[in-house]
């Protein structure tokens, strides 16, 4: 069975109007390939190949994985589990992939995902994460594709009472890529921090889309996404907080701030709050700007060459979204990647 291009979303779909998957897929091979991810598990965890349908097929790209992927790669994290080692997911380099993580009550897990592919690949990943009461997840996504890769990675998180999510995304884009996070908040006192940074050069594209569905009271959401685009790159941010009527005392903040470093780059941004509860604190902010010329002159006057001054200011601008990352080694490696990117693009 091969994939029918007509099943892919196009710009006519509101949620995909800035990320035209169908157009990009026309030039791509391997549309119906089966992907084979590689897992490095912390001690005490095992992986199963489940065949059951996950039944969360809320996006067009998710539906495709249920037709074309191999088994559902399933990791069951027992109640109360904790480990110093992260769950490492690699081999996210081609085809359709389905992954299911279940975090038992009070379980705590750190996940590091490397999204990097070979040339000319199509990657479509659907990941479902169930978080039981009091479960805690620290998730880092490092995304760096070749310029010829088309990637969509969709994550559906369901969070029950007291669950804690800390997500950090660092993306350098690809030909066309979309990293989408959907969170269904089902239990009270859930705390989620969804931070990310994208740095794009050449004709790269990344779309960071998120949808947080709040149906219960007393939850806290913090989202901060920073973007840096240059050359002819395009960054897309779409964020939505959907605060349903019972979700009183929701405390939610969404920020997207981006720097445009060239005349031909593009930022598309759509922050949305849809609120039905009447006693909530919800805010969103969105800024798009350039580096501060006064600060640049100040730094150059002190002897710092222009390129290095720009790199320092840009690094300072994006790096703060990773301030709260607990894994210091991981944080250092993310900052190093940012610095390397700045060195190459200056």
């Amino acid at each position: 069975m091969s994939l029918d291009l007509n099943t892919l979303p196009t710009r006519r779909d509101e949620a995909w109007k800035w990320t035209d998957v169908r157009a990009a897929a026309k030039e791509q091979g391997g549309l119906s390939d089966v992907g084979l991810p590689k897992f490095t598990l912390p001690e005490g965890l095992t992986i199963m190949e489940a065949s059951s349908d996950l039944a969360i097929a809320s996006t067009p790209m998710s539906r495709l994985t249920s037709h074309f992927s191999g088994p559902v790669w399933t990791v069951n994290v027992p109640d109360g589990f904790s480990s110093d080692e992260p769950l490492l997911i690699e081999g996210l380099n081609r085809g359709h992939i389905r992954i299911h993580l279940i975090l038992g009550k009070g379980a705590s897990l750190s996940v590091i995902e490397h999204h990097a592919s070979d040339e000319n690949r199509f990657v479509n990943i659907d990941m479902v994460i169930d978080m039981k009461e009091g479960a805690s997840l620290e998730r880092a996504i490092i995304h760096d594709d070749p310029e010829s890769c088309l990637r969509v990675a969709t994550t559906h998180i369901t969070a029950w009472r007291g669950a804690k999510i800390n997500q950090y995304v660092l993306s350098f884009g690809g030909d066309l890529s979309r990293l989408e996070t959907r969170v269904a908040v089902m239990g009270k006192e859930v705390e989620a921090a969804l931070n990310g940074a994208y740095l794009l050069g050449a004709k790269r594209h990344v779309d960071m889309t998120s949808y947080i569905d709040l149906a219960v009271p007393d939850c806290t959401i913090r989202q901060a996404v920073k973007g840096v685009v240059t050359d002819k790159a395009r960054g897309v941010f779409q964020g939505k907080f959907h605060v349903r009527k019972p979700a009183q005392h929701t405390d939610a903040e969404m920020r997207h701030d981006a720097l445009m470093l060239s005349d031909n780059c593009e930022i598309r941004s759509k922050p949305e709050l849809e609120i039905y509860a009447d006693d909530v604190a919800c805010a969103h902010g969105n800024t798009i700007g350039q580096l501060d010329e006064n600060a640049l002159f100040y730094m150059r006057q002190r002897g710092i060459p222009a390129g290095q001054a720009r790199a320092l200011l840009t690094e300072a601008f994006v790096a703060d979204v990773f301030d709260d990352l607990e894994d210091e080694t991981l944080k250092d490696s993310l900052l190093r990647k940012i610095r390397d990117w700045l060195k190459e693009t200056k």
């Binding site: 501060d292 600060a295 100040y298 150059r300 006057q301 002190r302 300072a316």
Partner: peptide, 23 residues
């Protein structure tokens, strides 16, 4: 360039020194 002049020894103390967040 400004940075070359700085290396030659020119220093300007600004009337309003800039704030550089994150550095």
């Amino acid at each position: 360039d400004p940075e070359e002049r700085a290396a030659k020894g020119m220093f300007l103390s600004f009337q309003y020194p800039l704030e550089i967040p994150g550095v």
